[in-house]
Amino acid sequence: ASPIVHDLIGVGFGPSNLALAIALQERGRIQGELDVLFLDKQATYSWHGNTLSTQSELQISFLKDLVTLRNPTSPYSFVNYLKHHGRLVDFINLGTFYPCRMEYNDYLRWVAGQFTAQSRYGEEVQFIEPVLHSQQVEALRVISRGSDGQQ
């Protein structure tokens, strides 16, 4: 079987690659979509895993979410997440720019859930190797192992 060729493969699907997925989707509406795939070794989306405590606050403003500084009108903003979950008024009434980490984790999970077609969980990248053609790197071969052991 011949390998599947993607325009971009992201290793991990944390906040940086989530922001990249959004930017590529928004770019794709104008310039044409790319075939992207994000691989994450975790079984499901989780930011900082079990290290989140119930009330600890984020130490950066919610305005530094995945999109607002780049595109304040993006539907992937933290404010839009709050609106969709009926929490906007409650959050505004807190009078803080710093959401709790649990809620921010839920925001990130909400965004990641909108990219299920472009992401695979339980998939650990084993190797990344150059594919050479005339001594030039033509592509990268990404070899990963799924939770089923399949490479």
Score class of each variant (00 low, 15 high):
117 A>W: 03
128 I>Q: 08
41 K>N: 10
106 D>Q: 14
121 Y>W: 11
37 L>E: 05
104 Y>E: 07
85 H>Q: 14
119 S>K: 00
76 Y>K: 00
17 N>R: 08
75 P>A: 04
146 G>M: 04
92 I>D: 00
124 E>D: 04
83 K>A: 08
94 L>M: 12
123 E>V: 10
1 A>S: 13
103 E>Q: 15
41 K>I: 02
146 G>Y: 02
114 Q>S: 13
51 T>V: 12
36 V>T: 14
108 L>S: 03
47 W>C: 04
125 V>H: 06
122 G>F: 02
112 A>G: 14
121 Y>I: 05
89 V>R: 14
7 D>F: 11
57 E>Q: 12
15 P>M: 02
35 D>G: 00
37 L>G: 05
131 V>G: 03
124 E>P: 00
15 P>D: 03
61 S>E: 08
39 L>I: 07
143 I>N: 05
94 L>C: 08
126 Q>S: 13
83 K>E: 09
34 L>S: 09
81 Y>C: 04
26 E>T: 07
113 G>Q: 11
102 M>R: 15
91 F>A: 03
85 H>W: 01
66 L>T: 05
1 A>F: 10
92 I>S: 00
146 G>Q: 13
62 F>M: 08
79 V>T: 12
63 L>S: 07
94 L>D: 08
41 K>Q: 13
96 T>E: 09
1 A>C: 06
138 E>A: 13
104 Y>T: 07
30 I>H: 04
117 A>G: 07
129 E>C: 01
59 Q>S: 06
6 H>F: 14
21 A>K: 04
105 N>H: 09
69 L>D: 03
131 V>F: 03
52 L>S: 05
1 A>Q: 11
25 Q>T: 11
139 A>W: 04
92 I>E: 00
84 H>T: 14
53 S>I: 07
141 R>M: 10
129 E>H: 02
54 T>M: 06
1 A>P: 07
4 I>V: 13
20 L>P: 01
96 T>W: 09
42 Q>E: 13
83 K>P: 01
148 D>R: 03
